[in-house]
Every structure is written in C-alpha cells, then in structure tokens.
Write a protein that binds this DNA or RNA. Structure first.
Length: 123
DNA sequence: ATGATGACATCTT
DNA sequence: AAAGATGCCATCA
C-alpha cells in the first residue's frame, strides 16, 4: 500500500474548508495546498474519494466557471444537483457564475509570472 | 522505463 | 468570445 502523501492531505483539508454555498477552482485548491502546477492531480484525488465522503467536493469547479467537461463526466449531474441543493444556480450544462459564488479571501487564479514567484520562493 | 490518459489551466488563433 | 494547441504531472497499461 502507498503512504498518504502530504499533497493529498493538504488538498482534502482545503476542500473541507470551502464554506457552504461557495465555490473554489481546482487551480485554487492546488495553489493553496502549495502546489501551483497541479490542478489535474486535485481532480484525480477527488475522483478517488469514497461515495459517502463528507467532503464538499461538489464545490470544486474549474476556473472557466462550470462543472468539468460540461456534464460529459459521469458524476457531473450529481455535482450539479448537490450545488443546487446548496442554493447555487447551475444549468444542465453545469454553467454557473463563478464570480458570484467564489470563495472569498483567496485569489481566483494566478498568472504565470506570479507562479514563478511561488516556486522560486522569492519575491 | 516508455507512452497514453485525465473531475485542469493558460496561451494563441 | 470561442475553439484549438500546449503545458503540467501523477496514475495506468
């Protein structure tokens, strides 16, 4: 069996912190977890979550403001339903108003230039 | 080890 | 604004 990596733990911890009725992007989560270049891995972690998880994974969308793959993904409909349950308006394609519901207090996204600052540890 | 894949993001047309 | 191409990197075959 593989040991639980800190990356995974950090991601899960942040996802759990997303306030109800708010949204965060994959890139945002990866960034806050300390890995600005790994939004896709965030998705992989969420994919591996158990069905009965307490984590609000449905509050994680992409920066374009819609549910991943516009509903082509097998669980997109589930995610959309759960978002609506929290009072977030979402259409059948998974489109939503990210600016309206985004998680307050954290940057929405990061430019490449700003990323280099993060990775190099300089300022 | 190499190549393909993916619940993404950013850049260029 | 919308669509295609490129970049990233862990997981899988």
């Amino acid at each position: 069996m593989k040991p639980a990596l800190p990356f995974r733990e950090a991601v899960l911890a942040f996802v759990r912190r997303i306030p109800k009725g708010r949204l965060a992007s994959y890139g945002q989560i990866a960034l806050m977890a300390g890995f600005p270049r790994r939004p896709r891995q965030v998705g992989m972690i969420l994919k591996g979550l158990p069905e009965n998880t307490e984590l609000p994974w449905h509050r994680v969308v992409n920066t374009h403001g819609y549910v991943p793959s516009k509903g082509r993904w097998w669980g997109a409909q589930v995610q959309i339903a759960r978002l609506r349950k929290e009072g977030i308006e979402v259409d059948e394609l998974g489109n939503l108003d990210l600016e309206r519901y985004r998680w307050e207090g954290v940057p929405l996204k990061l430019s490449r230039k700003a990323e280099s600052i993060f990775t190099s540890g300089e300022r």
